[in-house]
């Protein structure tokens, strides 16, 4: 039995906006084991990126953690002062590949200059030593070591994304949160990046949270899958079980909406309506206004995650 590296319990993060309180992450509980990839899927606005930022201990203002706990290797992160988080946790324990980060590289500095900054400040390394380490990590992600002397505009999109991945790994974190790391890349490059992440998982025994709205990409890498809807996890389990025996109507609909490459699909399913406003979410099950099976109880009471099978949970009154 491998140990849980991350334990999240009843986590709540709300945005205190002027229009009202947005419940973006609402009562989430899940674990990640060492060397495991958890895929996190859902439509835009379901709170999947907010969760990523929250785990890094930096919810975007006006967001605040209002409850629950995040334990990294047994150590409670919620409530730690900012300087401890910065010095001991962020990037050293948990790193994040931000969405669109490849376009945020500073154009006036060389790749090497930007890469070694954390090594100089966090680890107190000498310049030479830091550059050596940066080159080693560039090789690890399949780039030539002399990329350290190049400027971002000299690199293609795929190369920049590799640099970002190398930067996330530099301080040897235990857990990497990858937020849509392949959007805006062409299919061939996307496949190469996914292959790279599979390789890193295998070689470094890395644990990962892989966030995307694309269930096809998620299937390529995830050991377990969590489906989020309107700030809540509605289904969680072993990826084979979630893909082949989806229990929640939302998961079933999402999977039926994907066109298949090698199969004839007569009609694609789609989910009528749109995700709810998170300031005044629907009562009861948040999916009930769009659910074809909605019953009386769905409108009144919030369903809890229930075990439907071994390592397979879903939150639905039908079960």
């Amino acid at each position: 039995m491998t140990k849980n590296i991350l334990e999240v319990k009843n986590l709540k993060m709300y945005y205190f906006a002027s229009r009202g309180v947005v419940k973006a992450v609402d009562d989430l509980t899940f674990n990640i084991k060492k060397g495991e990839v958890l895929g996190l899927a859902g439509e835009s606005g379901c709170g999947k990126s907010s969760l990523g930022f929250t785990l890094m201990g930096m919810p975007t203002p006006p967001g605040k953690i209002v409850g629950g706990s995040i334990k990294m290797e047994g150590r409670e992160l919620v409530g730690l002062p900012e300087d401890v988080l910065r010095k001991e946790i962020r990037w050293q324990k948990i790193a994040m590949i931000f969405q669109g980060a490849m376009n945020a590289l500073n154009p006036v500095y060389t790749v090497g200059y930007q890469m070694i900054e954390p090594l100089l400040y966090h680890m107190g390394m000498e310049r030479e030593e830091a550059l050596d380490k940066a080159q080693k990590y560039l090789e690890l992600v399949g780039l030539a070591p002399d990329i350290v002397y190049r400027y971002p505009h000299e690199l293609s999109g795929g190369m920049k994304q590799r640099v970002i991945i190398a930067m996330a790994l530099l301080l040897e974190p235990e857990l990497v949160i990858a937020d849509e790391p392949t959007t805006a890349l062409d299919v061939v490059v996307q496949a190469q990046i996914i292959n790279l992440m599979k390789k890193l998982k295998k070689e470094l025994g890395l644990s990962m949270i892989f966030i995307t709205h694309d269930l096809s990409i998620l299937a390529e890498i995830s050991d377990r899958i969590a489906i989020m809807y309107a700030g809540k996890i509605v289904e969680l389990g072993d990826s084979k079980k979630v893909y082949y025996e989806p229990a929640h109507p939302y998961t079933q609909k999402l999977l039926a909406a994907i066109p298949r490459l090698h199969e004839d699909v007569e009609r694609l399913e789609f989910i009528p309506g749109q995700p709810p406003n998170l300031i005044t979410p629907p009562t009861g099950c948040r999916f009930h206004p769009r659910c074809p099976y909605a019953m009386e109880v769905c409108r009144e009471q919030i369903p809890e995650l229930k075990e439907v099978d071994k390592d397979h949970y879903a939150a639905c009154w039908l079960l």
Partner: peptide, 13 residues
């Protein structure tokens, strides 16, 4: 191009 297309088949991981 076809080999690069991701498909929702969990065994591929």
């Amino acid at each position: 191009l076809l080999a690069a297309v991701p498909e929702p088949i969990p065994e591929r991981r």
